[in-house]
Amino acid sequence: MISATTYQAASVVAPTIENHFIEQLATARLSSNQQVAPLPSAYVIEKVIDVAFWASLRREEGHVIKISLAYLSPEQTRLPVVFQQRLPLTPAILTKLAPGVERPGIHIGVWEEDGELYIWGTTRSIPSLSFVVDVSEPGLLVIKHRRLDGFGKYANVAVLKGDQVKLIDENSAALEDCPAFLTSLLGAEKPFTDVSANILIQLAVSMRAHKRGGSLLVVPAASEAWQASIIKPLLYAVEPSFSGLADLVKNKETEKAKGTWQETLKREVDALAGLTAIDGATIINDNYNLLAFGAKIGRAAGSKPVDELIVTEPIIGDTEKQLHPAQNGGTRHLSAAQFVHDQRDALGLVASQDGRFTIFSWSPCKQMVHAHLIDTLLL
């Protein structure tokens, strides 16, 4: 066990993260009778982050390590793999364990006794609101927790990259122009009872995962006005529209009854998100029918070029900026901003090759395009 914290960011963020879990757990105990996770103290948070950070900078047989640590005892999980002997929580031990636990969904179990933290084993099952530290890449840690409803992507609390600290600002969800699925990502509501929010979040995560960059346009099913902003001919138009994901949403109760909902949803989402890697934009309607991919965006006849947009990021301390679209990203970003400027009932989702992810929506309050930077929420 390391006795002194040497990663300064861990000391800085620990009290704030502790307060987050105090509030979340108190609310959960009032509103739900399900089992929730133990409260991590600032000491525990600081030490786990410190050890995870130094482990992230190591390599095991030349490979970068990717691990997830969860704070809970073996008694608070189902079917844990419990080691006969406790292991000390050190960067060296985490590095040795990493090759066997790097698959998604596996957590290294960490617990405390008499002021000492130790590794007791691994688990795939953790209680709601469990304190989790993901080592995503060297020097990059994501602090998150399992959602109260237990379904969907974990809610991010903070992202630490070297000396850069980003604390998620859940109050961003109070913005009048905040898109519904951004509100869901921020954990401001029980998001995954909202199927549409769930699907858009999974599409965003899948788009980001293929690391080729891409654009997804979401247009209203009841209108064809979006075609005025697409250059013709549309080489990869889909006629009739492909309804694999749409049909799954319509029949979700049947799939859930069969126990295949999540698996089938992931397959359909990944197939659709994969099309965004093709040059040009993928277009779906708000019923999730695939309309086209590889589409080239053009300025609608009679429309003015978009010359300014609002840029915000849902982290504490962020201030709203007004920028020219060219200052916010490359060609994909500029074309998606123009599309939303012309088609104000549409959404534009843009993934960059470097992992940046932006939602473009129209702001009725500001009467301009709003760019929401959300890559910190998708890690």
Rank of each mutant, 00 (worst) to 15 (best):
M1I: 12
T6M: 08
A10T: 10
S11C: 07
P15Q: 03
F21D: 14
E23K: 09
A26R: 14
S32W: 10
P38T: 11
K47M: 05
R58N: 12
V64N: 07
I67E: 10
L69H: 02
L72A: 11
P74C: 13
P74Q: 05
P74N: 10
V81G: 07
L87S: 06
P88K: 06
T90W: 10
P91K: 01
P91L: 12
I93M: 07
G100N: 14
E102I: 08
I106Y: 06
I108Q: 09
G109N: 12
I126S: 10
I126Y: 00
I126K: 06
V133K: 03
G139T: 04
L141E: 09
K144L: 06
R147H: 11
G150N: 14
D163C: 02
D163R: 02
L167A: 05
I168D: 00
D169I: 04
N171T: 14
N171K: 11
L175Q: 01
E189F: 10
K190D: 13
P191W: 02
K211P: 07
R212F: 06
S215P: 07
L217G: 13
V219Y: 06
A221P: 11
W226Y: 08
L234A: 05
L235P: 00
L235G: 01
V238W: 11
E239C: 15
P240N: 14
S243E: 15
G244T: 13
G244P: 09
A246Y: 10
L248N: 03
L248S: 12
G259P: 01
G259T: 12
T260R: 14
Q262L: 15
T264N: 10
D270P: 06
A273N: 04
L275R: 04
A281D: 01
N285G: 02
L290R: 09
G294A: 10
G298M: 11
G302T: 00
P314T: 00
I315V: 12
N328G: 05
T331L: 13
L334D: 07
A336V: 03
V340M: 02
G348M: 01
G348R: 00
R356K: 03
F357V: 05
T358E: 09
I359S: 03
W362Y: 03
H370F: 01
A371G: 03
A371N: 02
L377Q: 03
